[in-house]
Design a binder for these strands. Structure first.
Length: 591
RNA sequence: GCCCUGGUAGCUCAGUGGAUAGAGCAACCGCCUCCUAAGCGGUAGGUCGCAGGUUCGACUCCUGCCCAGGGCGCCA
């Protein structure tokens, strides 16, 4: 049996040994304990506490009516013999510490060598399908740095789940319907009119960014001045309406009438497609690729919204009030009821979202994950409520929130405002600090933690920068390999010919132990949706490698020792690469 | 007012019932004739927001309070 395929088998083995000791104590010694009581076997932090430790004696002491340390002695005395165990100690309040034989750890090198890029992967998900919806930024402008965090986080979660045996489907929900799209369209039209030398101001709440000008210029290039209107009618509208919200609504109505349905739709599509393509390219450059872009508009067009509402009505979850149709979400845990159809007959965004989530269920996914900005947290209860009302299991949907990021340039905070177009785009960020640094910084904090993103730090090519620290460890291994080849001291081709038992230095022991815990870290990072665990692990692994590198010469004269060390650092290199790949960061061969 | 997140070293953060609470940065002291110093070692730094409770044991779980940020639309 491969003991360190994962730590799980080792833990299970030790658990079994303890369990049989408990049974013997209960049956032969007539100790008043339930051998089925849960207890833990865990990897220790401190090597002085052995390799694994169990709290079993503390858990059972009160049952047995003895002191934990006394019970520990009895448990240890009744432990069946095992070839893996070198020594068992009792320490502290009653911990049982297991010291394992060195050989037990060495096998991890063979396993990493064999499994290579798949080391750490597992079949936890058993091929279940999972839909991950993330980013889903409104297609009204370029992605900004907040979206970037959702992208990096979602992509990492997707990679993690894939690696532990789920079939992952990545989806972007495109909000291509609603008033905001009308505002986009009107913004494009007004910029177009300006390009045609018509004197007109942009309303305060129109989209102001330069990309709107770019779209408008392209349209003008193509169709000339076909879409212009009389200056005077615009002047009248602007004069009559000083409230910007009102003004823009009037302008939208005016444009629809003036341009006609077809031409208005032409502008709408030009604007939408330009921005959508821009977002898609931006994300692709960032290493984030989706399997599907799901159109909100398509839901209405295919009557999916009506269908969802009909189910709610049939299940008696709707009522009429003040001319609108309400969803009684309070009966399903929400704090207030929600409108699904407005007084003016239009479905709300929420109604579309109900239909969208119904579609996720209808497409047959075993599990669904939504990744939202933290500002949407008030939305969770109503979405969960709507699923229950549709007769679906809300437990199949996990909603993960990502807190916003604040940009700093050194000590100075960078102020941003989406409205005025005064914000740093994801593209600008990537260009300034590199994709690697951006991907790394975005996931190095717990997602629900507010993130301070320091541009100076992220792009500094110095020891302060944690990305380089880990990448450098990888590059350093590669460098040693190159040195070895140059001196004709390359790795043995047959790993089986090497006696790994000569890896007896404390630093080597530490590395072997660290390497063996990687599958467990991956497992935890995946089930807890916490890619930052990978980051912390990699930092520790890199640190232990750098320490080792400084303490021990790898290319020594003794050929067996040299080969064994080369195999060890090859394993380090492999695991760093695997971990970085999960979070979308490259593993350079040289730096 | 209600709901969510946070509050751990000077700063940025790990640590979801275990042993003496840990990293990085900043500070201070050392290490390149030697496989990349983008590195390593060492010193210093703490009332884990406050107060109770649960138990063999609490940064961790429960209750109350204080502080910070966010959310509470017939917007999306």
């Amino acid at each position: 049996m491969r003991l360190f395929q994962d730590n799980a088998p080792v833990k299970e083995t030790l658990e079994h040994l303890i369990r049989s000791s408990l049974e013997r104590l209960a049956q032969v010694e007539n100790l008043a304990i339930d051998p089925g009581t849960p207890f833990k076997v865990e990897k220790t932090r401190d090597p002085g506490h052995g390799d694994f430790a169990s709290n079993v004696a503390m858990m059972l002491a009160s049952q047995a009516g003895t002191k934990p340390r006394e019970l520990a002695v009895m448990i240890v005395d009744n432990l069946p013999a095992s070839p893996s165990i070198k020594k068992v100690d009792i320490a502290g309040p009653g911990f049982i510490n297991f010291f394992l034989n060195q050989d037990t750890f060495l096998d991890i090198i063979n396993i990493i060598n064999e499994q290579a890029d798949h080391f750490g992967h597992s079949d936890l998900g058993q091929g279940q399908s999972v839909l991950i919806e993330f980013v889903s930024a409104n297609p009204t402008g370029p992605l900004h740095i907040g979206h970037g965090r959702g992208a990096a986080y979602g992509a990492a979660i997707a990679n993690l789940l894939e690696a532990v045996g789920y079939r992952v489907f990545r989806e972007y929900y495109l909000n291509d319907a609603g008033r905001q799209m009308d505002i986009l369209t009107i913004s494009v039209w007004l910029r177009y009119l300006q390009a045609c030398d018509i004197q007109i101001d942009m309303p305060a709440n129109a989209y102001q960014g330069d990309y709107i000008k770019t779209i408008a210029a392209a349209i003008q290039q193509k169709i000339g001045s076909d879409f212009i209107c009389e200056q005077e009618s615009l002047n009248v509208i602007y004069k009559e309406h000083s409230d910007p919200e009102k003004l823009i609504d009037i302008l939208i109505g005016f444009a629809k009438k003036e341009l006609g349905k077809e031409n208005y739709f032409y502008l709408f599509e030009k604007g939408l497609n330009y921005i959508r393509d821009d977002i898609e390219n931006d994300l692709a450059d960032f290493g984030v690729v989706f399997d599907n872009w799901f159109s909100e508009r398509s839901l209405a067009e295919n009557h999916k919204v009506q269908e969802a509402i009909k189910i709610l009505r049939d299940n008696d979850h709707l009522y009429e009030k003040d001319g609108a149709t309400w969803f009684r979400s309070t009966s399903l845990g929400d704090e207030k009821d929600r409108v699904v159809i407005r007084e003016n007959g239009q479905a709300t965004y929420f109604a579309s979202d109900i239909a969208y989530h119904l579609s996720k269920f209808e497409r047959g996914f075993d599990k669904m994950i939504d990744i939202w900005g933290a500002d949407h947290h008030g939305y969770m209860a109503r979405v969960k409520a709507s699923l229950a009302a549709l007769g679906k299991d809300p437990g199949q949907l996990d909603i993960l929130l990502v807190q916003f990021a604040t940009l700093y340039r050194g000590k100075e905070k960078i102020q941003m405002s989406t409205r005025s177009g005064q914000y740093v785009t994801l593209r600008e960020l990537r260009k300034e600090v590199s994709n690697d640094a951006a991907r790394f910084f975005y996931v190095m904090r717990k997602s629900e933690q507010h993130l301070d993103f320091d541009l100076e730090l992220a792009k500094s090519q110095s020891q302060d920068n944690p990305v380089y620290y880990i990448q450098y460890a990888h590059a350093r291994v590669c460098s040693v390999m190159r040195q070895a080849e140059g001196k004709n001291l390359a790795r043995e081709t047959e790993i089986g010919n090497i006696d790994l038992a000569c890896l007896a230095e404390p630093h080597e022991k530490a590395l072997l132990s660290r390497l063996s815990s990687y599958p467990e870290i991956m497992h935890n990072a995946a089930v807890d949706y916490e890619p930052h665990q990978i980051v912390y692990y990699l930092r520790e692994l890199a640190n232990e490698f750098h320490t080792y590198y400084n303490a021990c010469q790898i290319l020594v004269d003794d050929s067996n020792l040299r080969s064994a060390r080369l195999e060890l650092i090859a394993s380090v290199k492999q695991v760093i690469k695997n971990g970085l790949t999960l979070i979308g960061v490259s593993a350079p061969e040289s730096m």
